[in-house]
Design a protein around this nucleic acid. Sequence first.
DNA 1: GGAGCAGATGGTAGCGCTATCATTTATCTC
DNA 2: GAGATAAATGATAGCGCTACCATCTGCTCC
Lengths: 342, 342
Amino acid sequence: MQSSPPENNRTRATRSVTLDDVAKLAGVSPITVSRVLNHPDKVAVKTLEKVQKAIALTGYVPNMLAGGLASKRSRLIAAIVPSIANSVYAETIKFFSERMRDAGYQVLLGESGHKQEQEESLIATILRSRPDGIFLTGINHSPQAKKMLFAANIPVVETWDITPTPLDVVVGFSHQDVGRAVAEYFVDKGFERIGILSAEDHRAQLRQQSFLKVLERKGKTDVSISTVPVPTSFLAGRIGMARLLDEGFIDGAVFSSSDTLAQGALAEIQSRGLEIPRQIALVGFGDQPYAAHTVPPLTTVKFDRALIGQKAADALISRFNNEKFDQKIVDVGFQLIERQTT
Amino acid sequence: MQSSPPENNRTRATRSVTLDDVAKLAGVSPITVSRVLNHPDKVAVKTLEKVQKAIALTGYVPNMLAGGLASKRSRLIAAIVPSIANSVYAETIKFFSERMRDAGYQVLLGESGHKQEQEESLIATILRSRPDGIFLTGINHSPQAKKMLFAANIPVVETWDITPTPLDVVVGFSHQDVGRAVAEYFVDKGFERIGILSAEDHRAQLRQQSFLKVLERKGKTDVSISTVPVPTSFLAGRIGMARLLDEGFIDGAVFSSSDTLAQGALAEIQSRGLEIPRQIALVGFGDQPYAAHTVPPLTTVKFDRALIGQKAADALISRFNNEKFDQKIVDVGFQLIERQTT
DNA sequence: GGAGCAGATGGTAGCGCTATCATTTATCTC
DNA sequence: GAGATAAATGATAGCGCTACCATCTGCTCC
């Protein structure tokens, strides 16, 4: 037998300060302390100060698990993106979580890897934390996922795309419109040969389809397509472009499904000593910060990633506050930025 | 008065399935259902199946808030990075959260914006969720932050840097060593003029200091320094490099504090028609995916971002499991990758 | 065949907080 | 200054789960 007891009374030893401790020290009831934290306007100024002093003195940290259980509001928000490491999604999340934090919510992040089944299992897991709302990327979800979301009975905001039939709210823009706009731009500029450098990404495919449809209508059916797997990269752009070039593609314009790919393509074109845009023209997608500063500066499709994040947060917050005005569909639009690669 | 009641009985109406419901349906006690979920090996196979059937039938989703409150294990992990949108940190987080998820934990993400006071307030907020562990970037934290972390009494893993005195565990590498290694490499290669293109980032400054110290010892005190603010960008790299070039820097080697800056620098150098590496040599930092494929391929310092994330997760997980072996300091090292910009 | 034991299951209590309603105290009106 | 109203505070109960210990069953063993 040991003289000092083992660590099995850890719970007691490390027991942290609770709301009751603060209440006792301040000489008020626990519920008053709760009010100081959650509805300070409903407490007399004198009491408020007394309690706040006690909070500071004890170093009290509210327990959101207990609060969430009692109030049925976890103040947690789930966010699911295809890829955390892709700065394009990361930027949306940055602005989304910033605004959610300002409103008193914390963000639980998950990565679906562009896979529906992974998104589904992620939703199942993340719902255990009883988030008050959920941020999804895209509008395509498995039936089971939709069922779970419906059963969870919480606000859902879908992003990055647009649909007349969102699960709840959708914030994004039309990828079909993007495809059409670029196709029409290529036709207007009079490019003879047309190519596509695209990732195997759902939204990229949407853009590609409408892009091709417009060209077809104009009689252009001979479009060279180079597809690369997700996640995309600079290297994938080089390889994808190399494939196009090796097949004899020249004196034409290429629509790339991302700026990252376009940047790789740029490198490949330059390494072959071809002239941009005279021999190869290029349009990116995303207007990443570097797009304006590549050599030559990249023509690309711009849309506001930050705005998507903010509007998505606003949509959830207005739902939480039971606000009347609920715009179910928020189109943030896009813009073709003409620089020097076309 | 309305004929149908208003929505104030929402709690009852949308009341979700609880563990008790499952227990009743399966004809067992609630605690047995709990065991099925948390310790399935302690339940008879027959009972297990019966309960699992009931779970599937009811669509039961465990409530982690309740479970966490009762067990004092939230299965939440807090992670704080300087910048979510910076793919370098994002990649570490990706691998960290992947491994944590496999172990049954979810990640709460926060952004400190490279600021200590913001990190501090973030820690205060995030501790309310009673995370079981916390992932920090860097080893510099405010005294108040350290106090809160200590009071929280949970495992802490600091990353991206190394120190003999971590708060708890540290996973990273020595930035001083990086600075020294690059300086020695420049001296060995015989570069006459030396420049620095660096962000106002704490770790970049560490590298810069030891870099300068080595050069000084070799008698090189005339180093041109161009500093740019965080967050860094391609454009910042161009601007920073332009400043160096405008000051007459030529026929020398530049140590850039990130590949992003280096890529911008590359564009600036090329746009001026200077030859790489004959007139300007360049070393980046990070070995981003594109570094090997720029034109010309970038010499840079490589370190394993994924490994940092994984090792950090492993450190926390081994702590949770009360495993004996606890390596307090995990050095993942780095490597100078010589390509064609030097 | 009954002591002894491991394995399976259940009862009780409580984690730390907040919703709800009740009560007390301050403020107002004429 | 009595009565009415509003503001401030408190008592009670319970959110959904798990730790802890108790109980029960079936089995082995000599």
